Amino acid sequence: MLDRWTMPLTQAPLSLIAKWLMAWEVRPDRVTLAAFVIGMLSLPLLAMEWYAAALVAILLNRLGDGVDGALARLTGRASDAGGFLDIGLDFVFYAAVVLGFALADPASNALAAAFLLFAFIGTGTSFLAFAIMATRHGLERPRFQQKAFYYLHGLTEGTETILAFVLFCLLPNHFALLATLFAMACLITTTTRLWGGYRTLRELEDARGERRTGSR
């Protein structure tokens, strides 16, 4: 929900970092992989309840996730392969953070973590399934041209996920409540994406069917 406002604000600083990396001939995919490795450090750090260190790893991962796209565009290396790698590793990272909190305190956090992972399955599959269909229908990305995939809006997007992770780390004793609330928001996102995606694709198919019928 907030991405449409936050993403334009972050492009200028991300581009500055990307230009510095471009001068050192760093490839975008290497930034993606480095950010993923750093982000995955949050799993053992969370399990050991080193929440401040885990938060640093999470924020560095998110920084790298923005820089790799900016670098790809500056160097003309934007590609479907890079976009696929980026989104695939993102979902693994998201799940790792939630697992880290479950391992930190299984008795208090495991159920809420499982509920959040369940909700993540919904947001992730609805996002990617529509992206596949959008590509087949040639749909454009008017608001998020920097995304590798068609970006179907929802209540919980990238900005909300980062904010949730920050809150989890700052208030680890309240993880169960915060994760449950965020999971419920993710389920709302899943519902609206499924309904919105279905309606969009159905309208496209009906319109094309009418054009084929009218041309006969």
Rank of each mutant, 00 (worst) to 15 (best):
2 L>E: 03
2 L>K: 08
3 D>L: 05
3 D>G: 06
5 W>I: 14
6 T>I: 15
7 M>H: 14
10 T>E: 10
15 S>E: 12
15 S>I: 12
19 K>V: 06
20 W>G: 12
20 W>S: 15
20 W>Q: 14
22 M>P: 00
22 M>R: 14
24 W>F: 01
27 R>H: 14
28 P>R: 08
28 P>Y: 13
29 D>S: 11
30 R>P: 00
35 A>C: 08
40 M>E: 14
41 L>H: 07
42 S>Q: 09
48 M>P: 03
49 E>I: 05
49 E>W: 07
50 W>H: 03
50 W>I: 00
54 A>T: 00
58 I>M: 08
59 L>W: 03
60 L>T: 05
60 L>N: 02
60 L>R: 06
61 N>Y: 13
64 G>R: 03
66 G>F: 09
68 D>I: 02
74 L>G: 04
74 L>H: 05
75 T>F: 06
78 A>C: 13
80 D>L: 13
80 D>K: 08
80 D>T: 11
82 G>E: 07
94 Y>A: 10
95 A>C: 08
100 G>H: 09
102 A>H: 02
103 L>S: 09
104 A>K: 02
104 A>D: 00
106 P>S: 10
106 P>I: 01
107 A>L: 15
107 A>G: 15
108 S>K: 08
109 N>C: 06
121 I>D: 04
121 I>F: 08
124 G>D: 08
125 T>N: 06
127 F>Q: 01
132 I>G: 06
133 M>D: 10
142 P>E: 05
149 F>G: 06
150 Y>M: 10
152 L>V: 14
155 L>T: 14
159 T>M: 01
161 T>I: 11
167 L>K: 05
171 L>K: 12
173 N>M: 13
180 T>V: 05
182 F>N: 00
182 F>E: 09
183 A>W: 01
184 M>A: 15
185 A>P: 06
185 A>K: 13
186 C>H: 05
187 L>S: 13
188 I>V: 14
196 G>Q: 06
198 Y>I: 05
201 L>F: 14
202 R>A: 09
204 L>S: 10
204 L>P: 03
208 R>F: 01
212 R>E: 11
214 G>V: 05
215 S>I: 10
